[in-house]
Design a protein around this nucleic acid. Structure first.
Lengths: 193, 193
DNA sequence: GGCCGTTCTTGTCATTTGGCAAGCCGTAAC
DNA sequence: GTTACGGCTTGCCAAATGACAAGAACGGCC
C-alpha cells in the first residue's frame, strides 16, 4: 500500500502542494484493522488521526437505554477520528469499528499537533476538515428535523450508496433515526398499505 | 460596555493568559443589533466572528417547503457565527437574528486569520471553539435520534432555561424538531390524555 | 451436511406526532 | 376605544413511526 491516496487527499483541499503533501504524509504510519476490530472504544482517548485508505467503518454509541446507535459511516478516502475526544484529550463516548477489513494511515495527537505548529498549510487543512465535518452534521440535523424518514433514506441512497453495500440495515436504520422495522418497510416502498 | 466579558471568555478555555486576552480583545470592535436585526442573511458570506455580550439571538434556515427552522440559540457569553460560511468564505444558507436588542464584540475574517497566524494560543482557542460546537451538535443529534420530543424539551428546559424566556415557542419547537402544536401539548404535560 | 445465531422482513396493534382550523389573548397601530 | 395581527392553545382526525413477536433467509462453524 502506498501513500498515494493520502497525499492526494491532503492536496485536494487546495492548501497543500504536492511536495508538502509528501512531507506531511511521511509522518503517518500504516494501521490495519480486521473486520469488527475497533479503532476506538468508549472510555478511551482517541489517539488516531486516521486516514482510511481501504475498507469501511462506522462510529456508534449506546444511548441511555443501551441501544446501539450509529453516529457516522466512513468510506475509503475519509478521515476517521472522534473530534471531541481527540482534541480535548477526554474519554470517548463512542466506538469506531471496522465493518470490513481496513487499512489506512494514522498519526498520533502529539505528532499532529507538532505538525500543526510547524506547518501553517497543514493547520489550514486541519481546520478545513473540522469545518467540513461540522457543516455535514448541520445538514444532517436539518434533514432530521425537516424531512421524513423515507426522504432521508432516499437522500442517503443517492449521496452514499456504498453504505448500503457494507453496513447491516439495522445500523443504517439507527443512523437515519428509525427502527429497523420501519426502515424495512420504507425500503419495501409501502411504509404502511 | 467594557471588554471584560470578552476577555474573561477568552481566558476561560485555559489557552490564553490575562495579558494575552487583553491584547487579543483589543482587536475586536463593538457591534450593536436592534431586536429583529440580522447579523447574517442567507446568500451573504458571514464576516463577523461575534462575541455576544448582552442579548439573545437565534439562527434559522428555510427548508425546502419554506418552513422557518431554528438551528441554534445564542445566549450572552457565546460566540455567534456561521462556521461553514465564515471559514469557507461561501454564501450562508442561514440567517442569524437578534431576538432582543444585542451588543457584543466583532472581528472580521481577515483580522481573525491574521491573529490566528500571529498567536498560537489564539489558534488553540479557535480550535477549541470549533470542537465545542461540533461536540454539542453531536449530542443534539444523538438526542434527536434516541429521545422523544417530550424528553428533548425537558432536557432543553434543564440545560438552557433562558431560551424559553426570550424565544417564541414556535422557534423552540422547530429547534426541537416538533411542530408548535405538539410543543404546546408537551408543555401542557399531557401529550394526548 | 446440520446447527446456531444474527439479520431482515412482516403482521398486528399502540403511541407519537402532524395537519388543520377555530378560538383566545395580548400587543401594536390607528 | 377598535381593529388587526401574531403567538399560543386545543380539538379532531390522519399519518408516521414504534413495539413486539414470529418466521424466513443467510452465513459461520463444527
Amino acid at each position: 500500500m502506498t501513500k498515494e491516496k493520502l497525499q492526494h487527499f491532503l492536496q485536494r483541499t487546495g492548501f497543500i502542494t504536492a511536495a508538502q503533501a509528501e512531507e506531511i504524509a511521511a509522518q503517518f504510519r500504516p494501521r490495519m484493522l480486521a473486520r469488527h476490530g475497533m479503532l476506538l472504544e468508549a472510555g478511551k482517548v482517541s489517539d488516531d488521526y486516521f486516514f482510511l485508505d481501504q475498507g469501511f467503518m462506522r462510529a456508534f454509541a449506546y444511548d441511555t437505554e443501551g441501544n446501539d446507535t450509529t453516529t457516522a459511516f466512513y468510506a475509503a478516502g475519509q478521515l476517521v477520528f472522534e473530534v471531541a475526544s481527540f482534541f480535548n484529550r477526554t474519554p470517548s463516548r463512542e466506538y469506531i469499528q471496522a465493518l470490513t477489513d481496513c487499512q489506512g494511515w494514522s498519526i498520533r495527537y502529539q505528532e499532529l499537533n507538532a505538525l500543526f505548529h510547524a506547518r501553517p498549510e497543514f493547520r489550514e487543512f486541519g481546520r478545513a476538515m473540522l469545518v467540513r465535518g461540522y457543516a455535514g452534521l448541520k445538514d444532517r440535523m436539518l434533514a432530521m428535523i425537516t424531512e421524513q424518514a423515507a426522504a432521508r433514506y432516499e437522500a442517503l441512497l443517492w449521496a452514499q450508496p456504498e453504505i448500503l453495500q457494507h453496513a447491516p440495515l439495522k445500523n443504517v436504520a439507527s443512523y437515519l433515526g428509525v427502527t429497523d422495522s420501519s426502515l424495512s418497510r420504507i425500503r419495501k416502498g409501502s411504509s404502511k398499505k
